[in-house]
Amino acid sequence: MPEIIETTVYRLNELSDDARDKARAWYREDGFDYDWYDTVYEDFQQIAEILGLRLKTRSVRLYGGGSRQKPCIWFRGFWSQGDGACFETFYSYRKEAPRRIRQHAPQDTELHRIADALQSIQRRNFYQLHAEASHRGHYYHENSMAISVERDSPNYQDMTADAEDTVIEALRDLACWLYRQLEREYEYLTSDEAVDEVIATNEYTFTATGRRFG
């Protein structure tokens, strides 16, 4: 015979401190079922274009059928050995990259430094350097990028002695920069303030112990 069981449910701000912490823990564990990193990826794609990078893409199937192209960007995090970010790309000289990157991110001195390093080494090689970066191995960090650098000189001139190391270091530094942006975004989205706002906006309810109800 069916029974009716009544349960008292609470909004987040009605819970005790301990129950509120459990409610937040539920969201942090189960609430990230979406591509929260998309905004970071979108900004990175703009930065890559400014610096002269053409990110490689891969085909991804859509739920409703068909497919779309996604940039070859990967990361693993956070706070474990081997965590990091990497990408696959082609690189060549892009005119006015230092000026444009300062317009795009006026306060980001690390991006300024990377753009300046690439500009300087290109100048010393008559703007003829190009590179390719591909992912290798099972981890995702700056050192999992295999990077080759060449000089496209009509007179078959060799690149300067420091060219290969400079370009490789700049691209790997850019991967480290990307990882820091992802880490910062994740820390913000999982902060008490951000989690409380999402829970309140979605009107989630909980039992007195902080267990998700509806």
Rank of each mutant, 00 (worst) to 15 (best):
P2M: 11
E3L: 12
E6P: 04
E6F: 09
T7S: 06
Y10L: 03
R11V: 03
R11H: 09
L12R: 00
S16V: 10
D17E: 13
R20G: 00
R24Q: 03
W26G: 03
E29T: 03
G31E: 04
F32P: 03
F32N: 01
D33M: 01
D33I: 04
Y34F: 09
D35L: 10
W36Q: 02
W36H: 00
T39G: 11
V40L: 00
Y41P: 05
E42Y: 10
E42L: 10
F44L: 00
Q46N: 13
Q46S: 13
I47C: 06
G52E: 01
L55E: 08
T57R: 08
T57S: 08
S59C: 09
V60D: 09
V60G: 01
L62G: 08
L62N: 12
G64K: 02
G66S: 07
S67H: 10
Q69M: 14
I73Q: 07
S80R: 14
Q81F: 14
G84A: 05
K95F: 15
P98L: 08
R99V: 15
I101T: 07
I101E: 05
R102E: 12
R102T: 08
Q103Y: 10
H104K: 13
H104E: 11
A105T: 06
P106R: 05
Q107P: 03
D108M: 05
D108L: 02
T109L: 15
T109A: 14
E110P: 01
E110W: 13
L111V: 04
H112A: 10
R113V: 12
I114D: 11
I114G: 05
I114C: 07
I114P: 07
I114T: 05
D116A: 08
Q119C: 08
S120Q: 15
I121Y: 08
Q122E: 14
Q122I: 01
Q122R: 00
N125Q: 04
N125T: 06
Y127C: 09
Q128R: 15
H130V: 11
H130D: 12
A131H: 04
S134C: 12
H135P: 00
R136T: 14
G137K: 05
H138C: 11
Y140M: 13
H141G: 03
E142W: 12
E142M: 13
S144C: 14
S144D: 15
A146Y: 15
E150Y: 15
R151A: 04
R151W: 13
P154K: 02
Y156V: 13
Q157V: 14
D158K: 12
M159P: 07
T160C: 10
T160L: 10
A161F: 14
D162A: 11
E164Y: 01
E164Q: 11
I168L: 11
I168V: 15
A170K: 06
A170H: 03
A170P: 02
R172L: 08
D173Y: 15
C176L: 13
W177P: 01
L178H: 06
Y179D: 00
R180H: 11
Q181T: 02
E185P: 04
E185D: 12
E187Q: 11
Y188M: 06
L189P: 05
T190H: 00
S191K: 02
S191H: 04
S191T: 01
D192K: 04
D192T: 04
A194T: 03
A194R: 05
V198T: 05
V198L: 00
E203H: 00
E203N: 07
E203L: 07
Y204P: 00
Y204D: 00
T205R: 09
T207E: 11
T207P: 05
A208V: 11
T209W: 04
R211H: 14
